[in-house]
Nucleic acid binder design. Sequence first.
RNA 1: GUGGCUGUAGCUCAGUUGGUUAGAGCGCCGGAUUGUGAUUCCGGAGGUCGUGGGUUCAAUUCCCAUCAGCCACCCCA
Length: 455
Amino acid sequence: MPEKIKPRTLKGFRDYPPATMIPREWIIETARRVYRSYGFCPMDTPSLEHLEILLGNGSEETDKQLYRFEDHGGRSVGLRFDLTVPLARFVAQHIQELGTPYKRYQIANVWRGENTQRGRYREFMQCDFDTIGTTSLSADIEMILVINDLLSALHVGEFTIHVNHRGILNGLLEKLDLSNKANSVLRALDKLEKIGEDRVRKELAETAEATSDQADQLLALTALAGSNEAMLAEAETLTAGNETGELGVAQLREALAAVSAALSPEAQDALPPEAQNRIQFAPSVCRGLDYYTGIVLETTLDELPSIGSVASGGRYDNLADLYTKQQLPGVGASLGLDRLLAALEELGRLEQTSTTAQVFIPYFAADRRNDYLKLATHLREAGIAVEFYPEAKKLGKQLQYANRRGFRIALVIGDDEFDAGECQVKDLTTGNSKTVAYTNHATALIAEIQSILAK
RNA sequence: GUGGCUGUAGCUCAGUUGGUUAGAGCGCCGGAUUGUGAUUCCGGAGGUCGUGGGUUCAAUUCCCAUCAGCCACCCCA
């Protein structure tokens, strides 16, 4: 007998059995619903692109992480490592037909050949939404509202949206004459919470050659704490005299005020106290996202901040300048679905179900198959998802199966019930059952099922 | 990509200071109970100890490599 091939998956690539796929789809559906509720429209692009498209302004890091190869026609190609670069190519190619403002969402896999860790895989899904072709602050405000709606709808527990404006830090850097060291400075400042002020100071001195006076000012900004209003006032003082910084503070102030106004006061008051500050000015949020130029945001879960940002985004001045002369400003953000799922799993916030139907019909009376199928059809027509067991096994076994899969209701019908035109509706959560007539288009039965499902 | 830790049944783990037939709990399958699932009792299946090599009379145990997972660094457009 030949050796069997060992079944296995590649590092960083995973299977998604039903128990993980069901919550996954639920998140996708929720994201889709929220995005659509703001008028964002679906679109997609190919997984594979010409290498030159993806490399574009690529940093060395991108280079290293990119999955690339030569296709059968000898072309250099690569798998997309995010959804923003393909979007840039897409709008550069199609903006004439699309018109502006163009609002899109895209939920798709991306690939990065980086080392794996909890919540970090080589194939993972991003749920992006963007508004292209407008510089209006309304779009920025809307981005914050979308993220707030989305995470609220996902039942992730309390979360914090950390909002900043690139202009504030850039302004301070200009003022301190450190603009040419921006990357090193931002990278060091971003580690503040992680490694502490002393080591950040050290890193600033080493990598950005910052003087201790410069470091003082940078840390004065990033270490700000207190209410959003108070912090903004401090930031205003620190950047005073610099146009970029002042504009940044002003825009952020306006956006935060608008977000508060948009969220109804009643809804706000109904939230627990910690949630009323869920949108916070965070002067140190600036990492990565090099092309962002305006408002930026990151979102962390209050119960598990260590897993990192589960949704981030911001405003960019010119999305597609690599591919077109047309200036295309925009604003957009992305939900990191796999990281979020990893977090929810760790927090025990995922529902354990392996079924998509709520109602189970055991195959009980062996020669009544067509009657069972007919009943199932009736229920489906009423919008109730039903699974009919394929074998006329012992009832106990079938109920055990139903219980394990997480069905809510079993409809027990044997010869006696068929003859009497009734049906036992068994609530699998409580174990109680109730006998209901199912004749007359099963109206009474449907009502009973719906009342149990509504619980 | 660099460094560290880990890998024993489907799951969570014990264990062997190198030595006969590698264990437990939970889960799974069957029966007690041929019309009712989470309890109870009885029985059963399931492991080349991640994989490959080396040292040894003997390796699941020691060594090397490799694969995978986790952690830190790096990075996260």
